[in-house]
Nucleic acid binder design. Sequence first.
DNA 1: GTCTATACGGTGATAGAC
DNA 2: GTCTATCACCGTATAGAC
Lengths: 191, 191
Amino acid sequence: MSVANPSDKAVAILNSARALMMDRGYNGFSFRDVAAEVGIKSASIHYHYATKADLAEATAKAYREAFSDAMDGLVGLDAPATLRAYGTFFVTTLRDQGGLCLGGVLAADAITLPDQVRAEVISFFDTQHDWVAAVLRKGQAEGGIRADLDVDTFAKVFVSGLEGAMMVSRGIRQPQNLETVLEHLILLARP
Amino acid sequence: MSVANPSDKAVAILNSARALMMDRGYNGFSFRDVAAEVGIKSASIHYHYATKADLAEATAKAYREAFSDAMDGLVGLDAPATLRAYGTFFVTTLRDQGGLCLGGVLAADAITLPDQVRAEVISFFDTQHDWVAAVLRKGQAEGGIRADLDVDTFAKVFVSGLEGAMMVSRGIRQPQNLETVLEHLILLARP
DNA sequence: GTCTATACGGTGATAGAC
DNA sequence: GTCTATCACCGTATAGAC
């Protein structure tokens, strides 16, 4: 059922673009790739998204919002467990889809991105850094996080550590390396 | 002077390919880009390197060897200072050339890489992890590194943290963020 | 060693029929 | 909304003259 507002096809295109970009980056996917997955012709995609920049921008925005919703769903856990659940988003993506974080992929491609997509990347990491820092701050108050930690800086180490570990782990064909890095990062934050 | 063994042009092509790949990734540079920089036609590149895969492989191999030589030059420093000098390789690359580590860029592009290039990526990170772990182990013996640290795991956190921070820092247009992450990683390793 | 010329597939994008 | 047809590139790669 459901009335399907922004058109089912538009959503299908967005999902396909997201999966392809997480796998191969902005320069590694084409309208024809998306068309083949969705079951339409590449020309038809332009009806929903005028340009590749528009498609990538919409994809990045939807990803950022969905990621924020997922983070907001992490309640009722102490700080270390929250960090673990957050990191498990990355672990699951790599293990189940073989893909990277869309934010990280686009950051790597940043130089070649249209401005509007680049702006989404900046917004994505601002959100991530702020959210992780807030978790750490609460953890310090509860005693689960080292009291002498600079939370804003450690948040950046944590996020960049996970992003880098995703790429390196996939690159060296050792996906389980990501989990190792995640657990060690959490360990470093504990008292 | 100098007799110039592997042909000056071949070296110039390699250097151009390295800079372009560090900036835009494997799928973001072309034979025509290299040709324009070196001052020849793109067809002439094929005389030195038959295919793009061959060129990328040779570039990655030269990068890995040059990086190893640079690491071997870091002697006479204690462990924290060695880690700082190592991390400064990354900081300098980002600040002076605006480029990323070639290993990290290729890891991000790993899915789309020819096998021979992918193999170089694996070799690169094996070298990095082993070298950093050895520095940490020596540091533990000297007392400059936390004795309870799992050096093999922290080495991976350190390398992935720098790789991720390079991409994120450039992506959000805050290159100085890389230095912040580097210093914090060193701090976390100290007793 | 480098050139010109060219082959040939992939790419984003548009026009216009249905 | 989706299609076919087409465009104007750009990509790697090759053949053969110089």
